[in-house]
Design a protein around this nucleic acid. Structure first.
Lengths: 328, 328
DNA sequence: CTGAAAGCGCTTACAG
DNA sequence: CTGAAAGCGCTTACAG
């Protein structure tokens, strides 16, 4: 029988002239089967391109748990750091992870709904989709990473407050007078992190400027170049993240301004990349391993019913850490 | 009935006092059900934390196809570029992708065997695991990316030959006299790509040195520093990849050697990162989108039986492209 | 609008 | 060493 359909265990059994459970024994190296029969069955399986259905098998054997990781763009250097940490942490606990990259230009709602039907829990950056997520994910345990909206479910907060305070003290100590906060442009006004920076600087007597650029190195470089050429005195840039900080480094270079001598530059994230540029980048490091650990703790806890996964939010907090390198 | 087991459709049916297919109707927004009943069922489902089994559903509905992506380390900057391209390409064709990172320190054999039972095809970097893969993956269609061993299955080759020739011509044109090939250290001797570089240089009358360092920026920087301080005349480094090239840039900086004036540096991969360093990095770009497209073509072709997936190797080739920037 | 029956593809006891 | 039966959790016709 040559059809376009995928072969099933019964097809193999028929082709080999045995029963289905003999096929199971052969396919799964189970013993209780003669070498000769086994060979015949495997040959039949091969010739039919037979592969056990993961659904049939999963239904009876249970299958491994699957975690859905929602991310925003794998090409944003921070993302793979986080994804790698989640994948590793999950693997250690015997969970598989399935990645949905929402920045793919495909319909995000469809992707999430689709993911929901494949996995047991969801972890990730929901951003402004946070609201619609509950419907799409239909009661699935969800752990939101660094949520921007209200806390309605499991969440891992990433809190820069203390590291920013430490950074501000450092800037005071090295004599910075005119810092600028270089924020990522957003429709909703200043990002929380930028506000925290501004507040910390104000608390120390500064009158920081707040400028914005698109969240990439080129735009940041252009903005920094503009600020430096504008004639307004500036001796430090606190960037929204490392990529923008690296753009700031480029901007300084173009204008011929020395970092850190004339202008100091600080990023956020702690990407390995920051150690590869020159001058090396001072930054507020996120411990992604810790983020991943908390996320998995919460997700699995909710999945197992140890933690509530509706109503009250269960929250863990990870704090940034100031890493002084050459640029500030 | 409060047990630790996961609720099934029958539990919900019982709790709501309806039949199982009424539960199906409620859960799947199917109509043919009164608003009142639906609400009662959904409430029961909620209170039992009921979620349809993906196996039960998949068995009858078929489920989306899943592609297993085997990669070596998400934190290696090239990897997420590739992974993002594969995820996007797969999403466009309606396939889900599941990632197995073999560099996780977990048992690779277990991971692969595990992956095999979850997916319909496998795509990825098998490296020296290539040999054992057939057993682990049990007849699954496999597309190997940039294989190092013999071609035994689907494969996407990434061929630098032409770009290296072009690069060598360029080096001649700009007056390079003493190029060094900076290879990634390996137990099996020089990498193929390094050999191609050496050959191309020799063909143009050079007597290139071949040095090695561990495949990371720090090791490359140290090696380059050593070469430069050794007194042996050197005016170009052809690195195994961009990360090592960026290390070479650091090495030159430490010794106080100007790039590209005194020494030229070239990488391979075409990472976005190369545009962020100073000087910007000349490199041999891999078109990861194209790699992903070919990989999916082959994988899906093999899966659908259009392409053979045993015996003859089905191969596609992607060529590097020389991208001249500041460093060479 | 609701329910009884059949079946998706597999594995796990249980017989022989 | 091999096979007949039951069942995993769901959905899809088919009746009513």
């Amino acid at each position: 029988v040559t059809t376009n359909e995928r072969a099933t265990i019964l097809d193999v059994a028929a082709a080999a002239g045995v029963s289905r459970q003999t096929v199971t024994r052969a396919m799964n190296d189970m013993g209780g089967i003669s070498a000769e029969t086994k060979e015949r069955v495997l040959a039949a399986a091969r010739s039919l391109s037979y592969r056990p259905s993961r659904f049939g098998r999963g239904l009876v054997k249970g299958g491994k748990h699957q975690l859905g990781l929602v991310i925003n763009d794998l090409r944003n250097p921070y993302t793979p750091e986080l994804a790698a940490a989640v994948v590793r942490e999950a693997a250690q606990r015997g969970w598989d992870v399935m990645i949905a990259d929402v920045a793919l230009g495909l319909d995000a709602a469809t992707m999430l709904g689709d993911l929901a039907s494949q996995v047991d829990v969801v972890v990730g950056y929901l951003g402004d989709r946070s609201a619609e997520v509950d419907e799409l994910l239909g009661g699935l345990p969800v752990v939101e990473l660094d949520p921007t909206g209200p806390l309605e479910r499991g969440a891992v907060l990433i809190d820069p407050t203390e590291a920013v305070a430490e950074l501000a003290d450092h800037l005071v100590a090295v004599g910075v007078k005119h810092p600028v906060v270089l924020d990522a442009a957003s429709d909703d006004g200043p990002n929380v992190r930028a506000r925290i920076m501004v507040d910390a600087l104000r608390a120390r007597g500064y009158l920081p400027r707040h400028v914005t650029a698109a969240d990439n190195a080129d735009a940041a470089a252009a903005e920094v170049e503009g600020v430096l050429r504008s004639g307004v005195r500036t001796d430090a840039f606190l960037a929204f993240n490392d990529i923008m900080a690296i753009g700031a480094l480029q901007g300084c270079r173009r204008v011929g301004v020395a970092v850190p001598e004339a202008v100091r530059v600080v990023g956020v994230d702690g990407l390995p990349l920051g150690a590869l540029v020159s001058p090396t980048l001072t930054t507020l490091v996120v411990d992604v391993e810790q983020v991943a650990r908390h996320a998995l703790d919460l997700a699995i806890g909710m999945h197992d019913g140890v933690l509530p996964h509706a109503g009250d939010a269960v929250v863990r907090t990870v704090r940034h850490r100031l890493l002084l390198r050459e640029s500030a």
